[in-house]
């Protein structure tokens, strides 16, 4: 059975692009528009990998990651964060919150798939 990936982003265009790329690559995709929704969707589905933006309304990506890491089901699930900042503080903050890795915007579909491949066995 193909793996399910949750993409969390308040930008519809980015979400569309990510979802489209992932579906093309044969993944199931579920979407959420902010951290709060992301938590909900993650808890209502069995998700194998999460790709999340950091800057979002209601609940930002870091808080969502922290929350997810508190759930038994998502303790070890790979979580990738999307960040425009190439600076290390943001990445460190993400790692501290429990993110597995990051993807610096702008990224293209190939890069996205490459990073997914890095943190999740096909």
């Amino acid at each position: 059975m193909s793996k399910t990936i949750l993409t969390v982003d308040d930008s519809i265009s980015i979400r569309q692009m990510v979802a489209f790329t992932l579906k093309q690559a044969g993944f199931n995709v579920v979407e959420a528009s902010d951290g709060e929704q992301g938590l909900q969707v993650a808890r209502n589905n069995s998700v194998d990998l999460i790709i999340t933006d950091l800057n979002m309304p209601n609940m930002d990506g870091l808080q969502m990651i922290q929350n997810l890491r508190g759930d038994a089901a998502y303790k070890f699930t790979p979580i990738l964060m999307l960040t425009t900042e190439s600076d290390d503080t943001k990445k460190m903050a993400g790692k501290q919150a429990g993110a597995t890795g990051w993807l610096v915007k702008p990224f293209n579909p190939e890069q996205l798939l490459k990073v997914i491949n890095k943190v999740m066995a096909a």
Partner: peptide, 12 residues
């Protein structure tokens, strides 16, 4: 493992 990293993926 707390950050969801799996050593097996890295070796792979």
């Amino acid at each position: 493992p707390a950050t969801g990293s799996d050593a097996a993926n890295i070796i792979r």
